[in-house]
Design a protein around this nucleic acid. Structure first.
Length: 916
RNA sequence: GCGGAGGUUGCCGAGCCAGGUUAAAGGCGACAGACUCAAGAUCUGUUUUCGUAGGGAUUCGCCGGUUCGAAUCCGGCCCUCCGCACCA
């Protein structure tokens, strides 16, 4: 469909406010939402899929008599927008080029510089892309009610979020405590994935080491390990041969660690401090006592010890660590490897076997040593058991022992947890990234038992498509525990009870769909009062009484009452539709927050979870350059083609592959549809024959299936039925010599209505061209619209198709090119016999017919009484058959008894005459 | 490892929950034919295999089981994909 035609209808829909519903008690309501997008750039085909599917559902429900609300708003909270803006301010080339590319799609080249300049303010990025997304979505014909648009940065919304957090807190679901975070040393601030260079490609995670104290006379030596369970096998200690060491004081104890480690310890343990330098000569001159074994250990210098990893001190376990084994050999350290873990099953790996296998003799083979270490770590972790030399830990699995020994070390003050980054990382600004422990991190405590119970109850009541996600939701909710809900930086709402913290961006977006129902009133109240007081939000959403808000004046009270009514009319989102990666985060928060804050009747009713979109089999990502923006789609392919493609090319729950050849295939079908619709023509005097009757019945069947499948949210199945199958039927009808204009015009009105949810622009245009008034988008599709399904018409055509297939099979098997085809149909007498036999009334058969019973049994599965007058069906299609097989076709009634084959109902005898 | 999904005919992808109507929808691709000067588009047929009569044989990851009957139900095994957190 021409772009200008699509734009015409989009404008008409907007001008007539077609999709801006109000309360209407005469209709059932239907509210459908898709999670709001984050507005740091243009959206691509992947986002478009979920909104398109939601729109098709919204449009269908509207046509089924529901009062449909499909609203949308924008998410602007969090750090990415802030970080991007900062990078543009700092002149980061990669970011600037990326945004310039984005802008090229929308803007005249001469405007780009000034827009880029405006992006130095983060809120401008957010508002710019919000506006673009609205345009893009309109260009795809979505029936979104934009009057309810707002953003997570709107002051009235933030007052709503504050109310939410006060409520959560009053229910005892908010707490604070210590928490490790990634941290930038120079910026003295927590950092997220997008602040770290290559953080998106190569993720940085936090690892928990156990710092183990080896007691000495003046100070202890603090080694850090991921494998505390190997402590019984320790033979000596290593320090770096190139690092600087200091004495750090932690909770009254003095430890020698590398200078780098001291900095990390200080960030992780409040009150700890460096008290002096210490030379490595001094460390080496001393002996230190190992925990558990109490052996006195010697310290050596080693090249493989990295002062910037862990504490810069390593305890040596040559029996279970490849590095240590290679090091004692290379340095000639007098140590004997000790085995403290034995492995049952597995690959039978040991340090020695790995060293021999890979020929490791030098610490400079670091790549190979790392690989060997990894393999051994895995083997021992999953299949290892502590042997008898491990004191109280003997016999435990490695996993049990690790935890038990760590606990023992901590409680006897011989160790503590030390956090380290999983790889060396720096911020995009170049500052080193380490792990710091924040002392007053705020959490939402999702582990509270009553809350989990309420959530499970809600999950049980909800609708799911596909159904198996119900179970996945139960699992996701069980798995949630305390979640940090606030950060030190980023855009968003400040925590009402501690304004130094900004509510984290997923936590501020859990119950926001409720605001769609009454955004206008809330905004207006905020304008009047300059804020949205907690009392009023409580009145609208919670349990407040009229008296509790009466002092705000009549206008405010009326607005609040209206907001409350709207909430109670619309809320409870009927369908929330999104892709599966949201399940274990957004959707579980969505469900749990509703379970905590809303009464049953306002809780979510259903979820539809979709698959992702890939492009030519590859994951879509901006860095690969295969992200096609939505604007490009509307202009390059047309909205309706995209919508049809999304609806038909994959089931909602599976991955959709976006590729040109598939799009072209859909385009051809779409063009065929238009071409067929163009052939519709009223034929008032035409009397339908068998094949037209068949088509109409088939169409009605497809229509019925369409409605059933759409109601079950099987969009793809519905469209295959009403689109592909109907087109195929029309093709068949044409080849059969049926009357195409008559047939199409008989169904066109209903057909256009059925297709309207998927290709609304095309259907509006067709609707108008057919002389209809009003919008097809708000027409109804009712069960009563479906005409009669004439079983005998269907049976007759089925009979003919089977006959054609049989003739073809015979021609194929015998390779005869027939000069003529003789068809002899079952006689009335034999038909009666067949009927008797089908009903097991064998005894009633006359003696003359009894001999045929054997033949009946043989052919039973092919015998079908569905067609009354077979000869008539064939005679009326004789021309078609003769044309098809390029020979004459003779029909006669079969006269059994003369020998040869017997014709049964649904099973005429076919004979091919050879060419002379 | 934990949790979830899945392995279907050249490919994509239905069917499986409610066993028979299923050699298995629909699409793509391939091949043949019609149309055309030709190509493209469109239409028709074929697309596991055997067959001189509409039939037979063997198929739905592998091995067993239940059943008159299994792609569909049950058990075991092999393999693949996805999520696992503070990040939107």
């Amino acid at each position: 469909m021409d772009r200008s035609v699509e734009e015409k209808w989009q404008k008409r829909w907007q001008d007539s406010h077609l999709f801006e519903p109000l309360q209407d008690e005469s209709k059932p309501k239907f509210m459908i939402t898709v999670p709001w997008p984050y507005t740091n750039g243009p959206l691509h085909v992947g986002h478009g899929r979920t909104y398109t599917l939601a729109d098709i559902i919204a449009r269908f429900r509207r046509m089924r008599g529901f009062n449909v609300l499909f609203p949308m708003a924008f998410h602007q909270s969090g750090t990415p927008i802030l970080a991007f803006s900062e990078r543009i301010r700092l002149g980061d080339e990669k970011t600037i080029n990326q945004y310039r590319d984005n802008l090229m799609e929308y803007e005249e080249p001469e405007n780009i510089d000034s827009i880029m300049e405006s992006f130095k303010k983060p809120e401008n990025i957010a508002s710019y892309f919000s506006d673009r997304i609205v345009k893009d979505f309109n260009s795809l014909g979505y029936s979104i009610d934009w009057t309810r648009r707002f953003t997570s940065a709107d002051p009235f919304y933030q007052d709503f979020v504050k109310w939410q957090f006060e409520r959560l807190r009053s229910k005892g679901l908010i707490k604070s405590g210590k928490y490790p975070v990634l941290y930038s040393v120079d910026d003295a601030n927590a950092v997220g994935e997008d602040d770290i260079s290559d953080g998106d490609i190569d993720k940085v995670t936090i690892e928990e080491y156990t710092a183990v104290a080896f007691r000495g006379d003046e100070y202890s030596l603090l080694a850090a390990s991921l494998r505390p369970e190997t402590l019984f096998g320790v033979t000596n200690l290593w320090i770096s041969d190139h690092g600087d060491y200091v004495i750090v004081k932690v909770e009254g104890e003095k430890y020698a660690v590398s200078a780098e480690a001291a900095q990390k310890i200080i960030l992780q343990h409040e009150g700890s401090a460096i008290i002096s330098q210490v030379s490595s000569d001094d460390i080496i001159s001393r002996k230190f006592t190992a925990p558990f074994t109490q052996s006195r250990l010697t310290v050596y210098r080693a090249s493989f010890v990295d002062p910037d990893n862990g504490t810069g001190v390593v305890y040596s376990v040559p029996g279970h660590a490849v590095w240590d084994y290679v090091a004692i050999k290379q340095y000639g350290v007098p140590a004997t490897p000790v085995k403290v873990i034995s492995v049952q099953g597995g690959e039978g790996l040991t340090v020695e076997s790995l060293v021999t296998e890979a020929g490791l003799s030098d610490l400079s083979d670091s790549g190979k040593i790392k690989d060997a270490t990894q393999r051994l770590y895995r083997e021992e972790f999953y299949s290892g058991r502590m042997n008898d030399s491990n004191g109280p830990f003997s016999g435990m699995t490695v996993q049990q022992a690790r935890e038990a020994m760590r606990q023992e070390l901590i409680s006897s003050r011989l160790g503590f947890i030390f956090y380290e980054v999983s790889r060396k990382a720096q911020t995009r600004g170049g500052s080193k990234v380490v792990v710091a422990v924040l002392n007053d991190q705020w959490f939402i405590d999702y582990s509270v038992e009553w809350w989990k119970q309420e959530s499970h109850d809600l999950i049980r009541r909800m609708y799911y498509y596909p159904e198996f996600y119900r179970n996945a939701m139960h699992e996701a909710v069980d798995w949630l525990r305390e979640r940090p809900c606030a950060r030190r930086r980023g855009l968003g709402t400040r925590l009402p009870f501690n304004s130094e913290w900004v509510i984290e961006s997923l936590s501020d977006s859990t119950i926001y769909p409720a605001v769609y129902t009454n955004a206008a009133e809330m905004k207006r109240i905020h304008e009047i009062l300059g804020k949205l007081p907690e009392e009023i939000v409580e009145y609208i959403y919670g349990s407040g009484t009229d008296e509790s808000v009466s002092h705000y004046g009549e206008e405010v009270v009326l607005l609040a009452q209206s907001a409350r009514r709207n909430l109670h009319y619309w809320y409870g989102v009927d369908i929330r539709l999104t892709a599966h990666p949201h399940l274990s985060n957004h959707l579980s928060f969505y469900v749990m927050n509703h379970a905590a804050l809303f009464p049953k009747e306002l809780q979510p009713r259903g979820l539809i979870i979709t698959g992702l979109v890939v492009s030519n089999g590859a994951k879509i990502s901006k860095s690969k350059g295969n992200a096609i923006s939505l604007l490009k789609i509307a202009t390059r392919y047309s909205a309706d083609l995209y919508r049809l493609f999304v609806a038909v090319n994959a089931d909602m729950s599976s991955t959709l592959d976006w590729n040109e050849s598939e799009i072209n295939a859909v385009r051809k079908r779409y063009e065929t549809f238009l071409e067929l619709m163009g052939q519709a023509g009223r034929q008032d005097r035409f009397v339908p024959t068998q094949v037209e009757k068949w088509f109409l019945s088939r169409f009605n069947q497809h229509m019925k299936e369409y409605i059933e499948r759409m109601e079950g949210n099987d969009l793809r199945g519905a469209i295959i039925s009403i689109f592909y199958e109907v087109i195929n039927d029309l093709r068949y009808l044409e080849n059969r010599g049926g009357n195409l204009p008559y047939s199409i015009s008989s169904v066109s009105e209903l057909w256009v209505r059925a297709m309207a949810p998927v290709i609304p622009h095309t259907c509006e245009e067709l609707w108008e061209k057919a002389g209809k008034t009003g919008f097809v988008s708000v027409e109804q599709i009712l069960d009563g619209d479906i005409g009669e399904i004439d079983e005998s018409a269907l049976a007759a055509e089925r009979y003919l198709q089977k006959l054609v297939q049989d003739i073809r099979d015979i021609i194929k098997a015998t390779k005869i090119d027939p000069a003529s085809i003789g068809i002899s149909v079952c006689s009335g007498e034999m038909r009666k016999l067949a009927q008797m036999l089908m009903e097991d009334r064998v005894s009633e058969a006359t003696p003359r017919l009894k001999p045929f019973i054997g033949d009946f049994m043989k052919n039973r599965k092919n015998i079908d009484l569905g067609v009354e007058d077979e000869a008539m069906v064939i005679r009326s299609s004789r021309q078609y058959l003769e044309k098809l097989f390029q020979c004459t076709v003779n029909i006669e009634e079969n006269n059994p008894g003369k020998g040869g084959k017997v014709a049964w109902p649904g099973r005429p005898v076919i004979s091919l005459a050879r060419q002379q």
